[in-house]
Amino acid sequence: MDVLESPPEARPAVVTGGPRRRRRGSGRLTPYLLSLPTLVVLAGLLAFPLVRMTMLSFQRLTLRDLFTGAAPQWAGFANYTTVLSDGFFWTVVLRTIVVAAICVAVSVLAGLLIALLMHRVSGWVRLAMMVAMMLVWALPQLVATQVFTWLVDTDWGVLNWMLDKLPGVDFSNHSWFVDPVQGWGVIIALVVWGAVPFLAISLYAGLSQVPKELVEAATVDGAGAWQTLRRIKLPILSPLIVVVTTLSVIWDMGLFTQVYIARASKPELDYYSLAVYAYQEAFARSNYSGGSAIAILTVLLVLGVMAFYVRQMFRIGEAD
């Protein structure tokens, strides 16, 4: 099945052969000259800040140092021990992981079900679903969050009004963010709503690649809908599912905008995700060193997942 993996012959001969060196001297420098601006940007905006942040996490930068420009004092592992021995940090770690896990599981599953559904409906319904999802996908995250906050508004929110219509339920003036569990419920709904279009549309495209003959042959052999799904469609789809799941994990572990904006730029402690925690520590409490330590721990936490995704994508970059 070359749908599954890139077959070895897809790797062009160029990789092994190397470039034919046409013009010696000047030609050799060309790739370096071409990539120089990119390298400068990456060095200045990525490498340097990363090094600086790592250093910072081992220093104690005070506001005074910030204004005088004096070199901050080295603090060894002090920032890390402070953070790691703080029960609140672990609460936030656990919360971030649980929220991300729910978001990823629900959105990938929903995306898969919607993709399957799109193959069952009539053409015009599929179009309607596509248009709806495109609109949602295109909407800026910040705007989407504000719209959701408005939907669940305590006094005039349309959600409270709808739920209130249910018999025996009183949701008038219900405040969704007082109880963090409900508040996170709203945030998770928002994340899933925003993620489903990408997932469903990608998986729909992937499902369309499943050869019809295979499905037909299975049906002739007496396989039911569930069996064709489990034994044929899902195995063929699995590389794509892995990639979109990995991406979702990375995105949802870095959850920031939805929380920060849903709490109107002033998130309470109950609404800290790791990204929010690092940001607030640095910019709301001017604890730049502590914030850096948290940020680095966050990156380390997702590094394994990132490495996996990068390896998958790297193969493509190498192949052609």
Partner: peptide, 19 residues
Amino acid sequence: ILMVQMIPFTALLIPLYLT
């Protein structure tokens, strides 16, 4: 290039702001 798209940029914001 692949890595940079993964790193949450709120993390990079601290050193960038200081610089």
